[in-house]
């Protein structure tokens, strides 16, 4: 028997085993979900943890637990569980580094792309691009008041720029000042700023003003440090607002960088 056939046979046997075991494990999962393991779905009440968060997200009557953000999801992402989000941005950074390493050659021999599509498509794409970017920035700025926030705005901008790359040409992307090296620099700088903002409360600790926690936003138990919670009468939610804006820039630059690198990678087979 040839090597190829032997390997195929081995794979075929393995497939059956895998499929059977998967079916069994997933049946167990379905049982858990439907047989009252999680209570009756959908439940009538919130889980207590969720209720505590929903009540405290904008709660001027309990200042030690609130984050002054009307959007509870934004409050969880950047305040209650801020460290998760910082790690997750780092995962995105690891992926960007990975793409840059794996597709190293696309740094060199950058050829200008084709001519793109017809003139009507081009001009309408430009208008749509501007509108989407403005809309996304609004999403980022209002992330703590309405649905939206850093990732949402950043991925929308990244998606728009990627579509522009396809509909127009690479030259256009370069002409409006988007370059891979620039994107990478922006990405690193803004990520450093995010980490710096997370560590800002420690300044008050160093100055001896009050005790402060990493990623602290408002006044907490045993600490008087606080970021601004209001801008005149509009709620600002302190670091949530800052993080949303910075995150928009990092995510947008990361996504554009990834798509640009994959799109400009040259070379079919090596033979």
């Amino acid at each position: 028997m040839s090597v190829r056939n032997r390997i195929r046979m081995r794979y075929k046997k393995r497939d059956i085993v895998v499929a059977l075991s998967l079916a069994i494990s997933m049946l167990a999962l379905a049982m858990v979900l439907n047989m009252g393991g999680l209570g009756i779905l959908p439940p009538r009440t919130l889980r207590s943890l969720a209720r505590s968060i929903v009540i405290n997200t904008y709660n001027p009557w309990n200042t030690t637990l609130t984050s002054y953000s009307l959007n509870a999801v934004s409050a969880i992402i950047w305040d209650y569980r801020g460290i998760d989000t910082i790690f997750e941005t780092s995962v995105l950074m690891a992926a960007v580094t990975g793409v840059a390493i794996v597709l190293r050659e696309s740094h060199k021999g950058r050829k200008p792309g084709g001519q793109g599509m017809s003139i009507i498509v081009k001009s309408s794409t430009k208008i749509v691009m501007l509108l989407t970017i403005i809309g996304s920035l609004a999403l980022a700025v209002h992330g703590h008041l309405t649905p939206g926030g850093g990732f949402q705005a950043g991925s929308a901008i990244g998606a728009t720029l990627s579509l522009v790359l396809v509909a127009l040409s690479l030259q256009f992307i370069h002409r409006i000042g988007i370059d891979k090296d620039t994107l990478l620099k922006i990405r690193y700088t803004v990520l450093a700023m995010i980490l710096a903002v997370a560590l800002v409360p420690l300044i008050s600790l160093v100055l001896g003003y009050s005790y402060a926690y990493i990623l602290q936003n408002q006044v907490r138990e045993g600490s008087y440090f606080s970021m601004p919670s209001k801008f005149f009468t509009t709620p600002l939610a302190g670091t949530v607002f800052v993080f949303n804006i910075l995150e928009t820039i990092t995510v947008a630059s990361a996504i554009t960088y990834i798509v640009l690198t994959v799109a400009t990678y040259e070379g079919k087979t090596e033979e």
Partner: peptide, 28 residues
């Protein structure tokens, strides 16, 4: 419940970054 929504947003971004890296490996 807002908590699963926040966790899912985190998971979506993580998923996207892994898929992007795996796709670039596929090219190679």
């Amino acid at each position: 419940d807002p908590l699963p929504q926040a966790l899912v947003i985190t998971a979506i971004v993580i998923g996207f970054s892994v898929f992007a890296f795996l796709l670039s490996l596929a090219v190679l």
